[in-house]
Amino acid sequence: MFEAQSSLVLHDEEFSSIASVIEKLLQESNSKAIFLVDKDGQLISSVGETGDLDTTSLASLTAGNIAATGGLAKLIGEKEFSILFHEGEKDNLHLSLIASRVILVVIFDNRSSLGLVRLRVKKWGEELERIFCTLEKKARQNSDSPKSFFAEITDEDIDNLFK
């Protein structure tokens, strides 16, 4: 039995602390680009050389990859595989699970190394884990707050989208 998770809601404050953590990770690990992706395939944040990349597809395929590997883990009696590494001719992908909820994707080439990336991901991953745990706590506290932005959406707003 899996547990149903609530919506992920991100405000400016958390968004900028996440962005600053992955920026530091990018510098310290000498990597090309870093993505933070929700386990359901939605891109949360990215830094580095992301210009030529189809980031939406990358996010969805990363989540598919992690989901498939998670399924394999369960088959052999593991809870999950928290780190995945894909080696290419020039570029490599390092995927790690943060707080069992988000996926940290690091793309790096020969300017860095797997060892360095693993070391830095461990350090900054813990920082990200803290941010996401706080976020979840906050979401739980706010879940029953009656006043909210989306409650103000009118039926007309929704209809207008489909005109």
Partner: peptide
Amino acid sequence: MSFINYASREINLKI
């Protein structure tokens, strides 16, 4: 699970 990003003002939904 929807993802609402107030920073980039986006709502993401999965069908």
